[in-house]
Design a protein around this nucleic acid. Structure first.
Lengths: 144, 144
DNA sequence: TTTATAATGATAATCAATATCAATAAGGAG
DNA sequence: CTCCTTATTGATATTGATTATCATTATAAA
């Protein structure tokens, strides 16, 4: 199961880096892996406080950064000034359809686009590490 | 010429919106249209101060936002917390290759990718308004 | 000119994220 | 199990970029 795999990966990361396993990190990990996509730090913080009162905002920020470093999370910026995180699915990648009407975010994957990206990068002698593709517009509901 | 066209477009926008033509706006317009791509607000401010001392930072911010509203500029966010602007070329669109080694930004266009994006959006009954595609990695020089 | 209104620039306010730091917790050594 | 070094936490201050405020100045139409 993906969730458990990410939890395992993070625990290995912590031990490999000589970091310590703490109650807070486990709590944040639990909530994070079972969360819906694209949560902002603020949203995750609120959700965490509900389940684990007393946790600090700074700790949430720090831990999410660790998640990104460990590879189990991706940091996302949609240009609204908030940092968002989403659980990473190893070996997969998806891009986003962002509705400017209601804020809904849908996901998609398209391997042909990915291949073309690689081709473009090759043409520039550029080595792709990661990419970001976002389509902004109106979702089906907001078009009506 | 593209630069003059953008200047004309902005002047029309100002008059159409009942805004006023000011020395500062003309100065910022001059510097902006003749600038290299992807300048941050800070960089544009510094460049402007060199040519037109006394101009305020807030005015630069406000005017760049107006440029974006008028359609002659695009606002760009690369995730480093700085807002950048680039002159818009009407009817064209390009995407970015961002080197995480030296920070260099190259541009590319690929109409096939654009078509596939439209196809993906159609499949979701989504109407694209704009999009952002950025490839992060190492440029030719940094790969060596 | 006069006059209503918009724009400017200095500065304060905002907002998310990060740094600081004293108190606490983890976990290996003995 | 206890000690001890070091990492972590959480409260708060700070940062850094952008935006709001507001008195003063400038624009452009009557």
């Amino acid at each position: 199961m993906k969730r458990e795999k990410n939890k395992e990966l993070f625990r290995k990361f912590v031990s490999r880096q000589g970091l310590k396993s703490t109650r807070q990190r486990e709590n944040i990990l639990d909530v994070f892996v079972s969360t819906k996509q694209h949560m902002s730090v603020e949203e995750l913080y609120e959700k965490l406080r509900a389940a684990h009162p007393g946790i600090g905002y700074a700790t949430v920020c720090r831990t999410l950064k660790l998640f990104a470093q460990s590879g189990i999370a991706h940091e996302i910026h949609f240009g609204d000034g908030r940092t968002r995180y989403e659980p990473a699915a190893q070996g997969e990648h998806h891009d986003h359809l962002v509705c400017t009407g209601c804020g809904t975010i849908a996901e998609f994957e398209n391997s042909t686009i990915e291949e073309l990206q690689t081709a473009v990068a090759d043409g520039h002698d550029f080595l792709i590490h990661s990419h970001k593709l976002e389509l902004y517009g109106l979702c089906a509901r907001c078009r009506k």
